[in-house]
């Protein structure tokens, strides 16, 4: 045993005269820690505050309609959206729902193969420079404003569709679906690529070491492992398609229709709000009906996100 009792040779600074008192002293680090905690708490909680605020606001504006003119049957099951009719205004959004659904559906048919293909190529096959260039390009594509896409639909796609398919009007489900699909694809690619990149390389190596080919590795190991993220990418695309306004306003033809072919013009829920809200008197039935559409959009988006969340959790539990 050393002659020196342990601790006697400790530096002066580490020896507190009264250790208990030292534990109660709040120093600068303590205050900074508290301040940061509060700041990030406010940041975190603000998302909930805003979402509740928005919901309360649109509910309040649409509430009068819900209590008065609103009839569930007419609202959801009638294709007649005639809010400005002098004698007998009708507020049926069935045709608008059909418009949004058909355009979003077609957009996903376009976007899912493109974006998943691009993501698999970037994450699994491309390397070095190719990969960097592709990533930057995809990000650039994602940054194109929706009005530019709408313009492309109006000015480029429109005449092409008229000529190719020999139809009277090129502003229709096909046009808007393709535009919306191309628009949603880059962001879906980014998310899907992140999901694929998050699959550890050791999985790929282990599978390849067993003699799996590149495609077998992707198909049997990487895609199942990235399933949640890929599903997230697709749902984000659906949400994007559902909520997109300007491009669909410009490319759908904006005429109320339940489409029977992809060459029919339609009108989307979002585009209706955007186009009409400015012309209505605040507090009128028409104004409130538009807000009711807003509530509907809000609820549907909420359900899509909730479903995504539940599905992802369910997958994780298994």
């Amino acid at each position: 045993m050393p002659a020196d009792p342990v601790g006697a040779s400790k530096p002066r600074a580490l020896q507190a005269a009264d250790p208990a008192a030292d534990f109660d002293r709040l120093n600068r680090d303590w205050y900074i820690d508290k301040a940061v905690q509060i700041a990030v708490f406010i940041g975190g909680i603000s998302a909930i505050v805003f979402i509740i605020g928005i919901f309360v606001f649109i509910s309040k504006e649409g509430f009068g309609f819900l209590l008065g003119e609103f009839s569930f049957k007419e609202f959801f099951l009638s294709p007649n959206w005639r809010p400005t009719s002098e004698g007998n205004p009708t507020y049926g959004i069935l045709a608008l729902i059909a418009g949004t659904a058909s355009v979003t559906g077609l957009a996903m048919l376009v976007a899912i193969p493109f974006s998943l293909g691009a993501a698999v190529f970037i994450a699994e096959f491309a390397s070095g420079k190719t990969r960097e260039y592709l990533k930057v390009t995809v990000e650039l594509l994602a940054a194109i404003p929706s009005v530019v896409w709408g313009f492309i639909g109006l000015a480029i796609m429109n005449p092409i569709i008229i000529q190719t398919f020999n139809v009277p009007i090129g502003l229709n489900v096909l046009n808007a679906g393709v535009i919306l699909g191309l628009m949603a694809a880059p962001i879906m690619t980014s998310i899907a690529e992140d999901a694929l990149k998050a699959v550890p390389d050791r999985y790929r190596e282990a599978a390849e070491a067993m003699g799996a080919t590149r495609w077998q590795v992707i198909y049997k190991v990487v895609l199942p492992a990235a399933r949640n993220g890929l599903l997230g990418a697709v749902l984000l695309g659906v949400g994007r398609g559902f909520g997109e306004t300007m491009a669909v306003l410009m490319a759908t033809g904006h005429s109320i229709n339940i489409p029977t072919s992809i060459f029919d013009s339609v009108r989307a829920l979002t585009a209706t709000i955007a186009a009409e809200l400015g012309e209505t008197a605040v507090g009128s039935d028409h104004y409130e009906a538009l807000f009711t559409i807003g509530i509907f959009l809000f609820v549907v988006t909420f359900i899509i996100n909730l479903t995504a969340d539940l599905v992802v959790r369910g997958v994780r539990r298994g």
Binding site: V199, Y203, A206, A209, M210, G211, A212, K220, V221
Partner: peptide
């Protein structure tokens, strides 16, 4: 074809994110 005839066990375990059954059935399936 070469790799299928050579089995490798790495120092750090790699359980593939598949079911236990599918992990073992992967090579025969391939």
């Amino acid at each position: 074809g070469l790799r299928r005839r050579i089995g490798v066990v790495f120092p750090l375990p790699v359980g593939l994110p598949l079911s236990i059954y599918d992990n073992v059935a992967l090579a025969p399936r391939l």
